[in-house]
Design a protein around this nucleic acid. Structure first.
Length: 160
DNA sequence: GCCAACGTTGGC
DNA sequence: GCCAACGTTGGC
């Protein structure tokens, strides 16, 4: 059985809703509420337990990578899609044929400083077509290559 | 299958 | 709060 290499991802969260501090507090969190097929497919079809995750704060004063997490479960149906009074309720989904899938995300650590979107942009060339920097990108879950992971992580110890 | 209208994301 | 860039919906 061939072992698959560890994969890497970036997952966005609005700190007002759920921040890296919140993840540190709970330790592990079901990534509910993703209602985009591309993002769902990454969680459903591609993520493996142990994959690395950049925790990214969006829609805030300084958007950027703020922490490290790991994929902590295999995929399972997002329970909020069945809750009638949930914001994430989907009347077209059923427990027999769930439409939305998620994984749990486990806290690894907070970065010593935020690696801002601005700073990441300054390294656009080295990051070679990083999905986060693509024009008009709105995906909340996106793939990161091993090289991109390494490069961004190396910025933590440098002065921005 | 086309496409206009609409809703959402997310940087600024 | 604004608005560009998208994805989705639904009429035809």
């Amino acid at each position: 059985m061939a072992e698959k290499k560890r994969q890497f991802w970036l997952m966005k969260s609005e700190p007002d809703e759920f921040s890296i501090t919140d993840l540190g507090r709970v330790g592990e969190e079901p990534w509910t509420g993703v209602r985009n097929y591309q993002a769902r497919n990454f969680m459903w079809k591609q993520m493996k337990v142990g994959d690395g995750v950049f925790f990214y704060h969006s829609n805030c004063a300084i958007p950027g990578v703020v922490g490290l997490a790991t994929v902590a479960s295999t995929p399972y149906p997002d329970p909020t899609q069945f809750v009638a009074d949930s914001d994430y309720f989907d009347p077209k989904s059923s427990p027999e044929e769930p439409r939305w899938w998620l994984v749990n995300i486990g806290f690894e650590r907070a970065l010593s400083r935020t690696i801002s979107l601005d700073e990441i942009r300054n390294h656009a060339e080295a990051l070679d077509d990083f999905a986060l920097l693509r024009r008009g990108n709105r995906l909340s879950v996106l793939p990161v290559t091993a090289a991109q992971w390494k490069h961004i992580l190396s910025l933590e110890k440098k002065t921005p």
